[in-house]
Amino acid sequence: MTDPMREILDRWKDAFDGHQVDAMADLFTSDALFQGFGPQVVAGRDAVRAYYEAVPDDRTAEVTVLSTYTIGEQVAGGFADVTFRDPKGWEAAVHLSLTLRREVDAWRIRQYHVSRVMAEH
């Protein structure tokens, strides 16, 4: 069995870096819970698509998987560090946690949560 967390994040990074919003939305379950940079948790694939449509086209992500787990054959997840960047020098480091669910055809993200990394807390 491959590592579902690494598999999904490789696909997510490719779609994010290419600003392929439909491909990104397809990585999520239809009832996904999503907490990005915004103040509200949103639900569903359409909300995820709308979130990514608002991200500037020139942003990219550097992903380092920190920890992964599986629970049986249907649930997996883990933690990663992600640094978002653009060519103008903007940068944002986050901790990312995912819960994944195996659907008939692929692993999908059921829960996505980022927490901004601050120099002081």
Rank of each mutant, 00 (worst) to 15 (best):
G77A: 01
V55K: 04
G18P: 00
E73M: 12
H121Y: 15
G44R: 05
V21D: 05
A54N: 10
Q74C: 12
L96F: 01
F37P: 12
M118Q: 14
D46I: 06
L33M: 15
E120A: 15
A23W: 03
V94F: 05
S30D: 13
V114K: 00
D10L: 13
D14I: 05
R6S: 10
A80H: 03
R101W: 11
R102D: 06
A25R: 03
D81P: 08
T2I: 08
P4H: 02
R59D: 06
G38E: 12
A76V: 04
G89I: 00
A47V: 09
F84G: 00
V104R: 15
R116P: 14
A119F: 14
L66I: 06
D22T: 07
F16P: 02
M5I: 04
D46Q: 12
V63A: 01
E103D: 08
S67K: 12
L27R: 01
T99R: 08
G77Q: 00
R102Y: 07
V114F: 02
T68I: 10
A93G: 09
V42D: 02
F37M: 14
L96C: 01
I8Y: 05
A47Q: 06
R45E: 09
G72L: 08
H19L: 07
P87R: 04
Q20N: 10
V75M: 08
V21I: 06
V21T: 06
E103A: 14
I71F: 11
K88Q: 07
M1S: 09
A54H: 12
V104L: 15
A43V: 15
A15T: 01
D31Q: 15
P56L: 05
A93Q: 08
P4W: 01
R49G: 13
V42T: 11
V55D: 02
T29S: 04
V48W: 04
D17H: 04
L27T: 00
V21N: 05
E103P: 00
A106D: 13
R45H: 10
Y52D: 02
D31T: 13
R45W: 13
V117P: 10
D17L: 04
V114R: 00
V114I: 14
E73D: 11
Q35A: 15
D46H: 09
G72E: 02
A76L: 06
D31Y: 11
S67V: 12
D3F: 06
F79W: 11
G18C: 04
F79P: 08
L27H: 00
P39Y: 11
A23C: 07
F16Y: 08
T2Q: 09
H95T: 04
T60Q: 05
V41S: 09
I8K: 02
A61C: 06
